[in-house]
Write a protein that binds this DNA or RNA. Sequence first.
RNA 1: GGGUGAAUAGCUCAGCGGUAGAGCGCUUCCCUUACAAGGAAGAUGUCGGGGGUUCGAUCCCCUCUUCACCCA
Length: 663
Amino acid sequence: MSTFDAHYTPAHHFARDADRYAAWERAGLFRPRPAAERFAMILPPLNITGGLHLGHAYEHAISDAFIRHRRMLGAETLWLPGTDHAGIATQALMERQLAAEGTSRHELGRDAFLARTRAWGDMTGETIATQMRRLGMSPDWDRSTYTLDPGPARATHAAFSRLFEQGLIYRAERDTLWCTGCQTGLSDIETTETAGGRICTRCSSRIEIRSTPQWYLATTTLAASARSAFESGQLRIDPPELATEYLRWLDEMRDWCLSRQLWWGHRIPIWYGADGTAHSFGPDEAIPAGWTHDEDTLDTWFSSGLWPLATLGWPEATEDLARYYPNDLLITGSDLIFFWAIRMTMLCTHLTGTAPFKRLYLHGMIRTEHGKKMSTSFGNTIDPLDYADEFGTDALRLALCRRARPGADLSFGRTDLTGALALLKKLWSIARLTTAYGIHLAASTPPEPQEPTHPLDRWLASRLERTRALASAGFEELDLAGTTDALARFMHDDLSDLYLEARKPSLRHDPGSRATLAATLAELLLLLHPIAPYLTEQLWESLAGAGGSSQDALDAHAWPAARPGRLDPEAETDVDRLRRLLHAARSHRAKHGIPAGTMLPGHADGLECSAELLRLARLRPDDTIRDHHAAAILTCGPATLTIGTLPQDAEQPLRRSRTLRRC
RNA sequence: GGGUGAAUAGCUCAGCGGUAGAGCGCUUCCCUUACAAGGAAGAUGUCGGGGGUUCGAUCCCCUCUUCACCCA
C-alpha cells in the first residue's frame, strides 16, 4: 500500500504520468479491440505549421473523454489521429524561411523544395504527437495518417478522377481572389467587390482580383447529397441551431475552385495532350507518352474533405473501411462547418452514398479569461503544456471538460484551472482519508454495498446513482459540462462535505460505512476516469486491496451500469432535512456569535440521522430542554432541532431566536 | 452589406412561463487532526432598453441597442 502525501502536487506526478502513458501504449490500450459494438472517430488532422494551442487541447480533451468512455462501455473503439499538409500556410512559412536565408523556392527547384518542406512537416508532426501524449490523449497511434501519405494521396487522386469522369470538374476562367504574395488563387468565390487591400491571413500579402484559368468542382449535386444526409436523419448535428447554418451553406454553395498555384500539396491529377486536351487519368492508369502533368496542386480542403475515407483505405474495400465507415462522431470547431464539415459530407456522401459520420459535434471557440479572441497576431495564444506544467494534465482536462457544451464559446483561464486543481486535491484528500481508515477498493469492480441500512449510507448510494445517471446522460447528449459538473458536485457536496463529515466516526468500525465508502469511491474513480485519467488510475492502484487487479488500466474496466435499485427517496428526504437543519443551526450560531468550538445543549426529533445532526451542529445531546427555555426551535417537516442556551446565559431572559419551516 | 449567436450578481456562466442560481471574488468567523488552492455563515441582481401575448415573462413574439463569429 502506498503512502499519501498530505497534498496532491501535480508536478510530483509528471514522471509517473509519463510511465503510465507508456504502459497504456505498450498494452495496446488505444487500439480497437473487436467487440459487438463499434465506435469510430477521426481526429481533425492537425496543421503541420505549428504545435498545439489551447483550442486543440479543448477539442482533444473532449474527444479523449468520449473515446475513453466508449472504451469503458466495451465498444470496439477507434480514434484515428493525423496531420494535414496545409498547402498555402506551409508553403508561405517555408518561403519566409527561404527568403530569410536569401534564397527562394525557384532557386531551390520543385523537388528540393518539396523534400525540405516534407522534412519540416515530419518534425512538427512529431512535436504534435509528443504534445498529445503529454496531455494523455489516447488515439490509435498505429493508424496515424498524414494527408500526403500514399493512402490519402491515392484516395485524393481517385476521388478527383471519378468526379472528373462524372463531368463535375471543369476548367474555367473567372474572377478569383488572388494572393499577390503566394501567387495563387484563394477561394471559390466569384466576386463583383473590389477586394482592395484585404490581407491574406496566411502570408500577410495583398489580395487582388485576377482572372485566371482554374479547375472547378460543380457543387449542386454534391450539396444535394449533403442535404439529404442531414434530412434523412443519417447525420445529426449538435448544437441543433447550427444545423440551420449547415443547410444555409448548402443552399448558397457555389462551385469550388480546386486548383492552387502552389508546389506544396497534392498535384492536380490532370494531364494535357499535345492538342491541349485535358484528361484525368486514374491512379492505376498509365500516363500516355507526350502528355504533361498540370503544374498546380489541389486545395488542401479537397483532401481534408475525403479524410473519413482516405484514412480507412478507400477506394479499396478494406476491412477498416467496412468496420469504421461511417464514423460515429466527428468533433470539430463550429468555425469549420463551412470549410471542412460540409466538404466532408458533400464529397464522402456523394462518393459512397453514406454520410461520413452519424453525428457532428461542433464546439465553440476558446477565449481568454475575459472573452478576448486568442490569436497569434494578438500575441495572446497559450501553449496548453504551460498550463499542464503548472496545474497538471488532469486539472487542465477537467477544467476544459467542465466548460464543454456544443456550440458555445468559452472564456477560459487560470480561475478555471485553479478550481479544477482544487477539486483534484479534494479527491486526493478523500483517498488519503480512506487509506487512513484502512479501507480498500476490494476488487476490480466496486463491491456491492452490503445492504446498507444506515440512512446516510443509503442516501449516498442514492446520490451516487443519480450522479451516475447524469454523468452517463451527459456523454450520450454530448454535454460534457453536465457530466463533469455532476461528478464534481457529488464529490464535493455529497461525499466530502456531508457524508464523510457525518460518518467519519463510524468509518473505523462500522462495516456498512466502510463498504459504502469503498464502493462509492471506486465508482467515482471510474466515472471520472475519462476526464482525469492519470490521477484516477493512480488512486485506483493505491487503494486496491490485496485481491485488486491494480495492474489493469481503468480504461479496461466497465463503465458503471445503472442500478436504479439504489435510489432511496426516503433516505434522500431524511438527509435533506438533516442538511437544512444543520444549515439553520449554523446560521443560529453565526447570528449569535457562538464559536463553532463551543458546545451547546440540543436535541433532535423526527429525524433518522439525529445523532449525526447533533454532532455536526456541535450540540451536546440533552433532551431535558423544554420549549420555553430553548434558544431556538428549528423545524423541517416532521423533524425538529431544539437548541439550548450557553450555561452562563441560562439565567438570562429567554429569547427564542427563530423557528424555521423549510420543507 | 448578408447570416448566425449572445446580453442574468464585481468576473465567468447555468436556468428558460409561476417568490432569481452556481463557481470565483467580497464581508465576518474558524488552523473543528482527509483537505487553508480548506471549512462555516453572510451581503450582492429594475435577468441590455422599449413594446406585445398571458392570470402571471428573465424565459414566448416584435423592435431597438451593444458585442462576438462566419461569409461578403
